[in-house]
Design a protein around this nucleic acid. Structure first.
Lengths: 202, 202
DNA sequence: CCTACCGATCGGTAGG
DNA sequence: CCTACCGATCGGTAGG
């Protein structure tokens, strides 16, 4: 792995764990095993490093999500989409934490990113849900846009804080580990609050 | 308002908006209109200030929640509880942001706080839900503990980031403002994923 | 990728 | 509640 990639990996982890303001350039350099000025040769400033960390996350996002959502929009399988979306965050909690921190720390920047990368897909999904409503496949009182936002929020935030929640939601031999219980209940809530009764049973 | 209370008010707002590491003691002193050493006369350190900000939040919590949850546990009206819980955070988004930041920044501390203040109530609610399951009032595949954690997470996180989400979830003359749409859909999702069909309709 | 170094700001203290 | 001041650390630069 190149030095640049190694810097990005450690920066991503540390920003996710401690936040941008809670992480010094020195700390990242130490983790990589180089001196601070060496790091600042690869990334001109701490801010530029952050931009690159975010850009890498968005790149991964854009490589995975379109296929995921397009499949759903052709098959009308929203629950599968939500499952995959949840999977996307659960497989790497740092991604969820980073996303959540960026939303809290730089709401204006995040708004711009959402407008560019997320709104088109939310609108696509919402339109599908709207049509499914007309066919009575989903519940009549669903607010499609709001529903999608709620489920994404639940997936991102739930995953970001899940390891802290194991004190409330302990491992249970009958129900599985904390993460499993979170993932399963999230999917169940998303699904059973969407479909009409004669559709939702499986 | 006393100086101490004024310091706490501004600190709460600034910590919620910018995070603990992103807020300097100087900045808080400026907001209050006093010098930095004067602030540090009232609170011996920045850390002690943070502890007091959190303590104030928990005090408010403990003053409001018990009545809320006890009412629910006697009346078996879980949706009303969730509605009130949501209301609690929505009426002051700073509270939700502070809570979320503290969970991300100091997971170990938050675990201890959850164990002391939240677990008893979650267990009480879960036990109620478990009994309601046996009576077939709520859906059979609900994981009560996990359900409560999901709904709380959705309420806290959803409220914390709601103002950033208005780019995805715009004001809509037919459906109301961003916050209204969030609050309504949250309640709808929580309710319709809980009750059995012949119960949930109203 | 390093050593050496910079001004600015950090949380905090002494003393009144 | 203030002025004056402290050592440590911050992000960043010069120069090799």
């Amino acid at each position: 792995m190149g030095v640049r990639a190694e810097i990005l990996t450690h920066a991503t982890r540390l920003f996710a764990e401690q936040g941008y303001d809670g992480t010094s350039v020195q700390e990242i350099a130490d983790a990589v095993g180089i001196r601070k000025p060496s790091l600042l040769y690869h990334f001109k400033s701490k801010d530029e490093l952050r931009e690159n960390v975010i850009a890498e996350m968005l790149a991964h996002w854009n490589a995975v999500l379109p296929g995921l959502l397009l499949k759903a929009s052709t098959e009308e399988r929203f629950d599968a989409t939500m499952e995959a979306l949840t999977e996307f965050f659960i497989e790497d909690p740092d991604r969820a934490r980073l996303f959540l921190r960026e939303t809290l720390d730089r709401p204006e920047r995040m708004r711009a990113m959402l407008a560019d990368f997320v709104t088109p897909w939310v609108d696509l999904l919402s339109a599908q849900l709207e049509r499914a409503k007309e066919q009575c496949l989903v519940q009549q009182d669903v607010d499609p846009q709001a529903y999608v936002v709620e489920v994404i929020t639940m997936a991102v935030a739930g995953t970001a804080v899940i390891d802290t929640m194991n004190v409330i939601l302990p491992d249970d031999p009958a129900r599985g580990g904390t993460r499993t219980r979170h993932a399963r209940e999230l999917i169940r809530v998303a699904r059973s609050s969407l479909y009409t009764n004669d559709e939702g049973e499986k």
